[in-house]
């Protein structure tokens, strides 16, 4: 169990480092997905399979796929398409694939050995999470909802189309 933890922690470390040093944003995103997946495996080894599943579904799944799509859609035009093709060279896939393969092997060994978590049989399932969130941490859930509202309002303002006057101002400042 401990080995599995250290292997996935090492993968998390390497992939996060690669996120930072990549020059192309799409390549960085690929490594970020691996990083999130390895965090999910860490959650699993710690005895929180539900948190691991959420990590995969929400972070690695929904949010990251959204990121990749947005980045892809931002680069429009023939020139950009050719550039994108050069990013997709097979060499780029090797790094993330190897890391993902290590994680997969790690995970398979874990599943084959059967459930024996570091925390010592104390598995945190969906029911525990729900009871904690809507019991002692109810105020925390409410506060987190306010936090999402803040993020939403901020992103809405910063991402909104500029007014004509603002565009003119930006031009004059260039």
């Amino acid at each position: 169990m401990r080995d599995a933890f250290y292997i996935s922690a090492a993968v998390a470390f390497v992939s996060t480092l690669m996120v930072i040093i990549q020059k192309k944003v799409v390549h960085a995103l690929l490594y970020l997905i691996i990083s999130l997946l390895s965090v999910a495996v860490i959650f699993f080894t710690l005895g929180a399979p539900f948190a691991a599943a959420l990590e995969v579904i929400i972070y690695a799944g929904a949010i990251m796929v959204l990121f990749v799509f947005v980045v892809m859609m931002l680069n429009l035009g023939a020139e950009a398409a050719r550039q994108e093709k050069s990013w997709m060279s097979p060499r780029m896939w090797i790094g993330p694939s190897v890391l993902a393969a290590i994680l997969l092997a790690d995970m398979l060994v874990l599943l084959a050995r059967g459930p024996a978590f570091i925390s010592g049989g104390n598995v945190v399932g969906p029911k525990h999470v729900g009871m904690a969130l809507f019991g002692p941490y109810l105020a925390g859930v409410e506060l987190a909802s306010m936090l999402l509202l803040a993020g939403l309002a901020g992103a809405y303002h910063l991402g909104r189309r500029l007014k004509k006057e603002e565009l003119a101002e930006r031009e004059t400042r260039r």
């Binding site: 925390g140 506060l143 987190a144 306010m146 936090l147 803040a150 993020g151 309002a153 901020g154 992103a155 303002h157 910063l158 500029l162 603002e166 565009l167 101002e169 930006r170 400042r173």
Partner: peptide, 20 residues
């Protein structure tokens, strides 16, 4: 949570006049 509730709006508030 309170700290994040204070910080996250501030990111947007500081860069509010975003043409500058």
């Amino acid at each position: 949570l309170g700290l994040e509730l204070l910080s996250v709006p501030l990111y947007a508030l500081i860069s509010y006049p975003r043409a500058n």
